[in-house]
Nucleic acid binder design. Structure first.
Lengths: 177, 177
DNA sequence: TAGAAGTTTCAGAAATTTTTGAAACTTCTG
DNA sequence: CAGAAGTTTCAAAAATTTCTGAAACTTCTA
């Protein structure tokens, strides 16, 4: 049985900070806190330990580690002789970030691009003010560029966007830099 | 009085797509829809027109355009002879994006960096497993790099991250790419 | 294989966010 | 200056998200 283990202040601070980042990325704050506690722990913890340290219900821990696993951010590990499941944090930041971008950001931007394309097509057929269509096309171009940038970011494994400089400029009005 | 003007399907499609992007960035979906309607309209619209086209309450329109103005994404324009206020969309994508990043993303990452630094400091004093401190420091390094990258992005006006390649690598484990 | 240990599920509770609608307020006009 | 037109504010309602806790389920052990 696990001894009581009131998370030290320093861990709380870090976990909460990471929680904010993760929330900003559209996940539940709890996911970020759990990952951080596992990461700082340096080794696998059981669901019960997480529960205890983060004061969550059994259900919340179960759902959260489930989601974290689906995102490849936490792994389930088997400890010989232990009855409980244990969980450990993925430590490769790049792996985690690129996966989220690949699966989520990409899906969003591609869906947006598709819908904008459909909107342009509709407008074209409807006829009417050509400048309106022009503006819609500008939105579409932007989405297309964004998609390309994200794709390159994910596949190159590098945060080097310079090759897209001209495309980005394309979208911006003439002036400035 | 404004004639009824049921937003064409194409506009709805586009507005909703942009709404999703904006929601992803942590704003209300309605803000994205309003901006898009204004953007596609190509010229100023009154609150009543927005209200009508987007089927929102007077209060919601007022609050939304207020927020959009605070973010510099929509401007209030005065039309001589008109009693109503009118609003028009900012059209410089870069201006809008960089401002949001400057004011919001930056605030987040800097707050996170500060808190992580505080957590490291606490850990150092508390003593205990030095590897734990090491891990916390790694988080801090990452936040510091992220802050630098964002800063450069905003000030250079360019999506060129290449100069940070080595720093990013610093944070990643040895292997790969 | 009975039962203990551990985990997942999910309906409802709680918390949070967003919207409404109407009153208060402001600004114009005759 | 009275009142009409337009806008903002904000408390309460509605919608949405997240969490809880207990029952159902699974897996291991004796």
């Amino acid at each position: 049985m696990t001894r009581s283990h009131p998370l030290p202040e320093s861990d709380l601070l870090a976990a909460d900070a990471v929680g904010d980042v993760i929330e900003h990325w559209g996940f539940r704050k709890a996911l970020g806190r759990i990952w951080t506690v596992l990461y700082l722990a340096g080794g696998p913890l059981s669901a019960a330990e997480l529960r205890e340290r983060l004061q969550m219900s059994a259900g919340a821990v179960s759902m959260s580690v489930g989601e974290l696993q689906r995102w490849g951010v936490v792994r389930r590990v088997w400890r010989p002789g232990e009855r409980k499941e244990h969980f450990e944090a993925e430590t490769d930041f790049w792996k985690m970030i690129s996966r989220v971008i690949r699966e989520r950001e990409r899906a969003l931007v591609s869906s947006v691009r598709e819908r904008l394309a459909r909107a342009c097509e509709l407008m074209r057929r409807e006829g009417g003010d050509p400048r309106r269509l022009q503006r819609a096309r500008k939105l579409l171009t932007f989405a297309t560029v964004a998609e390309a940038v994200i794709g390159s970011f994910v596949t190159s494994g590098r945060a080097d966007f310079s090759q897209f400089g001209n495309l980005l400029t394309l979208v911006r009005p003439a002036g400035r830099n």
